[in-house]
Amino acid sequence: MSARLSLWLLMLPVLLWLGLLIILPHIDMFFVSLRTRVGVGEYEYGLANYAAFFTEPLYLRTFARTAIMSVLATALTLVIAFPVAYFIAKVARGRWQGVLFLFCLVPFWVSELVRTFGWMILLRETGVFSSVLQWAGLADGPVEMLYNDAAMMVGLVYTSMLFMVVPLVTTLQSLDDSLVEAGYDLGGNGFTVFREIILPHAVPGIVSGSIVVFMLSLGNYLTPTMLGGKDSLWFTEMIYSQFIVRFNWELGAAFGFLLLALSSFIVWAALKLSGQTLEKTLG
């Protein structure tokens, strides 16, 4: 009896947290998403907001673009983070390991806003890169590198790096060096050892890192709006503008739920494709 009571008491904070901060607001949001404004202070219940999403090509396009760009950003982050993580986990020794890890962490000491501004200073027409290129004689006039999809990608990858490096370092550290040596000893070269031994071992880290990075990119607001420029369509931006600029909470809430559905679907599909389960990845 008292054991059960203490169990409940132990779980209380978690349950409260889940209930009050996650489940309750979502239920409320869901009801809001089912409402449609028909006049001043008058609302009607129905699926009109969801219908609006599926009939407006702009919303669908933004939705698809956000998903594809996020997947791309995740893939790029993985490609860049893997060698970094491998170096930290397997090549660097002792104090170096810590120092390198710290380097990955440093950008996170400042806020995302400042980090994004940093990139703007580097990439803008009168910015550092442009000036260096002109000084080196590689460019005749100022080069604009800001306000395009590439700049946005750079920002997304930069913001996500750490969240890919950490799980990768953890899984790669658990890879026994002798497995790699055995791979070579039995006739493998660098490529085959990577493909057949290192990569399969790192799959749980890759999957969990990718899930986090994908979610972060999908839900990112600052980076796409600030670095992306006039053509940067990002779904979170659309949700923000529905809520704040258009006062259309109803459509914004519906968008929010669609984004939730999208991210859940893509994560589920990625887990299925890689043959992983959520428990395995998180455990």
Binding site: D176, L179, A182, D185, L186, G188, E196, H201
Partner: peptide, 20 residues
């Protein structure tokens, strides 16, 4: 190099590939 030497090694903890 090790992958060409006519020598093979049984490792201390055997190093069997767990994913195979």
């Amino acid at each position: 190099p090790p992958n060409r030497r006519p020598v093979n090694m049984v490792f201390q903890h055997l190093a069997l590939f767990p994913m195979m």
